[in-house]
Design a protein around this nucleic acid. Structure first.
Lengths: 206, 206
DNA sequence: TATAAATAAAGAAAAAAATCACGATTTAAA
DNA sequence: TTTAAATCGTGATTTTTTTCTTTATTTATA
């Protein structure tokens, strides 16, 4: 689909999307760039520039059609293009993500969870089974999954990542604070919660 | 402290910090900008520019002292300046964050959790008590807490946020997909997990 | 000691992102 | 109907961020 959209814009598009969902639920059919801008604390021309990317014309003095914007954003970000993934690490964070049903509507399909704790194995979370980590290579191959969401403790992050890579996982969404060492063909996305918090903290609180 | 560091740089600083922790644990005393750059897939002059911000000189042909860099990053990002916070919403995500001990070493002190589910009230998570949400205004005032980490379901996000604001919460770290409406004196930081994922997905997978 | 290689530092250049400014359009109101 | 206000669209400008280039320094090696 339309790729190569810069991170920052993608991020704003998802925020716009949330607002569209809210407006639709409230039965509001049109929305203007200043309304959105004020809500997000950004410039209104920024919003319009982003929307131009969606090929979605607005109407002067009226604004944009909420439904059309929502559809365009979904199309642009590939919501419909479902991607399968495993969650590796069935601790609280892994379970929280497994229960996070929004993933589905955004095109991310969690097929199963993996853990090394025998007590957790065979449990079900949100209709997804927890398997022993040793089952991962086989299931990866059988189901053709190449995305893993890594939610193990920091100490295990690198060895588990190595295991995932051996099992042909190509994309790791890394929720651990470890900076993973991976070969060039494997892509890592660091969620980096602390970085996120510190950005918040540095700006306003300290 | 040294504020107004742009988001992107703050984010990189936390990644550098993770690498420093790892090097220290491995007993490695120096590190060079190309090493770090390669690890993170960025330009090495970028790394040096970031380090210049820390007033931390390197040595040609040798690199930087790992320990010094780690300390500088911690000082710059205000790790030592402890900030107290409440977690609002004791679902899996809230519990996961309550158990996330890294928060502490990064200067974020979770004092307690809040939920409206009577079954959860009075439970302990990682030595932190879960209170009924009705206790929040009182505790906010008594403990002088003005940061809330919001992990309730999307449907409850706005009403709970309104309640927090009435209770004098000034900073909301928003893990819900809702885009909150808040008065100008209240600052919201959207964690926006889906945005994060879609950035990842758009880049490489679709 | 001389040479080569790795690296930091710092300025220049390029690229990307955000903001500004203004004309055009549309709707509502006088 | 005229006027005013709101809003879009877009080019220009500014700011920020990243990358490139060069010079200087340090260490290791011949």
């Amino acid at each position: 689909m339309s790729k190569n959209i810069p991170e920052k814009i993608t991020n704003r598009l998802t925020l716009y999307h949330s607002i569209m969902v809210e407006y639709l639920e409230a039965g509001i059919e049109t929305i203007s760039s200043p309304q959105i801008a004020q809500r997000l604390g950004i410039d209104d021309s920024q919003v319009r520039k982003d929307f131009k990317l969606l090929n979605n014309a607005g109407k002067c003095r009226v604004g944009y059609m909420v439904k059309d914007l929502k559809d365009s954003i979904e199309k642009t970000l590939g919501f419909a293009h479902a991607k399968d993934a495993f969650i590796v690490g069935a601790g609280h964070l892994g379970l929280a993500l497994a229960k996070y049903d929004s993933f589905n509507s955004y095109g991310l399909n969690i097929l199963a969870l993996f853990d090394n704790d025998p007590q957790k194995v065979d449990m079900q979370v949100n209709n997804k089974q927890i398997f022993h980590i040793s089952k991962l290579p086989n299931l990866t191959q059988r189901l053709g999954v190449d995305i893993a969401i890594l939610t193990v403790p920091r100490q295990n992050a690198q060895p588990v990542a190595d295991f995932l890579i051996d099992s042909n996982i190509k994309y790791i969404w890394n929720f651990t604070p470890a900076v993973l060492k991976v070969p060039p063909e494997v892509k890592v996305w660091n969620e980096n919660l602390m970085g996120s918090f510190l950005q918040f903290a540095c700006k306003d609180i300290i």
